[in-house]
């Protein structure tokens, strides 16, 4: 009995009617190779470096988990961790409240809305470094913000960026100022998806505007809310540019604005302690991944 020509899957793939599917691999190959070289490899490499002492000059020396153990007793790291967590707190809850409030306001119909919305959106345009430079000028001890505050309490000089209390607050305020309009746009996109019929029906049933918002809009905004919460905290964990541009040293005064992102730069590119820098970034990575994990859980439940 003549055997039917048996073709292995390799042969089928290469010459069968599905031959053209291989083009797909060719199309994705550049991107895959790129990510392998510039994302996947560096991440693994970063873990490896965090287990060594490496100064760029001498070959790396394996020290196991020592770098992580040292971080626990490292005052600078503890300070930076605390500052970062406080910054995240300031860059999340107030941002959610302000952006949602402004989105709800802009969701109403009123005259001049388009203009106002455009103006409100402007802080999103300049690169973060420009935001930092301009606010550094506005927050000059005798600058515009001082003059503004002076109208109320007569102050003539306020050490906005030179006080260990005001400087971290200023970082949060400037950060929030620059991101609120962006998150407002996202809430607005979410609000656009709320069924107008449902709202109308509730209103006819005599629900107050607040109750309509609470019982109709908010539940429909669930996915948006999870997203805004996750993105704002992930961004906040990575903050460093404002601190770098606006504060003396950077991270000053007295390390009050030293955040983890700055610490990576300090250890890595000022002290050339690559192992410690990599360990700090691994800690940041773990924190950010846990935010992502929480986000995915909420998404799945929704």
């Amino acid at each position: 009995m003549p055997a039917a020509p048996r073709r292995g899957w390799v042969a089928t793939w290469f010459s069968g009617p599905r031959r053209h599917q291989w083009w797909g691999l060719a199309f994705v190959l550049p991107v895959v190779v790129f990510f392998a070289v510039f994302s996947v490899f560096p991440v693994l490499f970063g873990f490896a470096i965090s287990l060594t002492d490496y100064s760029l000059l001498d070959p790396p020396e394996f020290v196991g988990l020592d770098n992580y153990r040292n971080l626990l007793g490292d005052k600078l790291f503890i300070t930076a961790l605390g500052n970062t967590l406080l910054f995240v707190l300031g860059a999340t809850v107030p941002v959610w409240a302000m952006s949602l409030t402004s989105a709800v306001l802009f969701d109403q119909a009123f005259r001049g809305k388009l203009w106002l919305k455009t103006i409100f959106f402007l802080p999103v345009l300049p690169p973060i470094v420009v935001v930092g430079v301009v606010w550094r000028m506005l927050l000059h001890p005798n600058g515009v913000m001082t003059a503004f505050v002076g109208l109320f309490n007569g102050a003539t000089e306020v050490p906005w960026l030179a006080s260990t209390v005001l400087a971290p607050l200023a970082m949060v305020a400037v950060h929030d100022w620059s991101v609120v309009p962006f998150f407002m746009m996202i809430w607005l996109a979410g609000l656009a998806g709320v069924s107008p019929e449902l709202r109308e029906a509730a209103r006819i049933d005599g629900a107050t505007a607040w109750r309509v918002f609470w019982h109709i809009d908010l539940p429909a905004l669930r996915a948006t809310a999870v997203f805004v919460a996750a993105l704002s905290s992930i961004n906040a964990f990575q903050t460093f540019a404002l601190q770098y541009v606006m504060t003396a040293d950077p991270g000053g005064p007295a390390n009050s604005t030293l955040v983890l992102g700055l610490l990576v730069l300090k250890y890595g590119f000022q002290y050339f302690r690559m192992g410690d820098a990599a360990a700090v970034s691994v800690v940041m990575f773990v924190m950010i991944l846990s935010v992502t994990a929480v986000q995915l859980r909420f998404n799945r439940r929704g």
Binding site: V28, V32, V264, F269, S281, M284, F285
Partner: peptide
């Protein structure tokens, strides 16, 4: 491969700075 690409979405750039610089 697609999963791999999506995973790289979750990698914040700050994690890459040190190893990427050495690379």
């Amino acid at each position: 491969l697609f999963f791999l690409v999506i995973c790289t979405l979750m990698i914040p750039f700050q994690i890459l700075v040190v190893p990427l610089f050495i690379e």
